[in-house]
Amino acid sequence: MKTGIIVDDAAIMRLRLREILEPDFSVVGEAGNGDEAVRLCGELTPDFITLDISMPQTNGIEALKQIQENYPEVRVIMVSAVGQKRLVIDALQYGAVDFVIKPFDSDRVLQAVHRVFG
């Protein structure tokens, strides 16, 4: 089973994303900010992460750059309310494989992760 990390500063969204993903994937960690996300990618070597943008300390775009630089094998799916066209393009250019805008349907999140692994 593929392993993933959920990164969101809102505990309630981490809980909901875990409930959506866990039947199909193994969620091995959670983080509430970008720094912690980068650290967990090194420690837990997940297959994928879901990454919020607006977070304390290091935001999701900065974390995405660091993850792509240090752990390029980790597939990153952005899950954020800040779905501005310019930021979506930034995220995809920096290596994210998909961008899910909140509020989301559960199926949209699940499909985004499944699609990554063909």
């Binding site: 954020s80 800040v82 779905g83 501005q84 310019r86 930021l87 805008i101 909140k102 509020p103």
Partner: peptide, 19 residues
């Protein structure tokens, strides 16, 4: 966060960034 994020999509338009 969701309401403000959704509004920021409209406010930012095609080329602006709102943080």
């Amino acid at each position: 966060n969701m309401v403000t994020g959704q509004a920021s999509i409209q406010l930012a338009g095609q080329n602006q960034r709102i943080h």
